[in-house]
C-alpha cells in the first residue's frame, strides 16, 4: 500500500503539532484514533492553539469533512445493503483515500473485505505515524519549523489541481484562495470556514450562470 506512505508526513505533523500545541500525548493520539480525519485534525489543533472556541472548531470540522457526505452518497448503493456492523465499520473508515480506491467499483466488483483491508491499513498507518510524530515532537523541539506544513499544501495542491477543469471550479478556487489569505491577514477566527464557503458559493453561482448560458 504505497499510498498509505503518503500519510507519513501528515501523521508526523499531526502528532508533533499536537505536542507543540500543548496537548497531552494521549490527546494527540486520541485525535487520530477517534477522529481519523487528517485535515480536520490539523486545523483543529491549530485552532485549539489559537484559542478558538469549541463551537467554531466543531463547525469547521463539520464543513471540512462535508465531502464525506458526498462519498457516503456515492457509496450508498454498495454499502447500505450490508449488515449494520459492516456499514458502521466501513463508514468509520471512509476516508478520501478509501473513497478514491473503491469508488469505481460497482455492486459486483465491490469487495467488503478489500475495502476493510484498505481502510484498516490507512487507519493503522495513520495512527503509527501520529505516534511517531508525538515521540519525535516531544524529544526534538522545533520539529514544526522544518516546514512539514508544506506537505499539507503539497497534498492538497495535488488533489485540487486535477479537479480544476472548468470555469466554475476556477472561480471557486480563486475566491477561496483570495478570501483565505485576506481573512487570515485580518486574523479572523473563522477565516477558513468563511473563505471555503465563499469559494463554494462562488463556484455554485457561477455554475448556475454558466449552465443557463450554454
Amino acid at each position: 500500500m504505497p499510498l498509505s506512505l503518503a500519510t507519513a508526513p501528515w501523521g508526523l505533523l499531526a502528532g508533533s503539532m499536537a505536542i507543540e500545541a500543548n496537548l497531552t500525548p494521549l490527546q494527540g493520539q486520541g485525535l487520530s484514533t477517534i477522529v481519523f480525519a487528517g485535515a480536520a485534525q490539523l486545523v483543529a489543533i491549530g485552532m485549539l492553539k489559537g484559542g478558538a472556541g469549541v463551537f467554531s472548531i466543531l463547525l469547521t470540522t463539520l464543513l471540512l469533512t462535508s465531502q464525506h457526505l458526498l462519498y457516503g452518497m456515492s457509496m450508498r448503493h454498495v454499502i447500505s445493503p450490508l449488515p449494520g456492523r459492516w456499514r458502521i465499520g466501513l463508514g468509520f473508515l471512509l476516508t478520501d483515500e478509501l473513497f478514491a480506491l473503491t469508488s469505481q467499483h460497482d455492486r459486483q466488483q465491490f469487495n467488503r473485505w478489500y475495502a476493510l483491508g484498505v481502510g484498516l491499513t490507512f487507519y493503522i498507518a495513520w495512527n503509527l505515524f501520529t505516534l511517531a510524530g508525538i515521540v519525535l515532537g516531544s524529544s526534538i523541539p522545533g520539529l514544526e519549523h522544518l516546514g512539514l506544513d508544506f506537505s499539507i499544501a503539497a497534498t492538497f495542491i495535488a488533489l485540487i489541481t486535477p479537479v480544476v477543469r472548468n470555469v466554475p471550479t476556477v472561480v471557486c478556487v480563486a475566491v477561496s484562495l483570495f478570501c483565505s489569505v485576506l481573512f487570515s491577514y485580518w486574523q479572523w477566527g473563522s477565516a477558513l470556514v468563511l473563505s471555503g464557503l465563499a469559494g463554494m458559493m462562488a463556484g455554485f453561482v457561477c455554475n448556475k450562470l454558466y449552465r443557463e448560458r450554454t
Binding site: A39, C179, S180, S184, A191, G203, F204, N207
Partner: peptide, 27 residues
Amino acid sequence: LSSNARQFLGFAVPGMLTAICGPIVFM
C-alpha cells in the same frame, strides 16, 4: 439531497482544501 445541495457540495473539495492551503502558502 436536492440537486442544488449536491452541486454546492461538489465544490467542497476545491473550496475547502484551497482555503486551507492559502494561508500556509502565502503567509
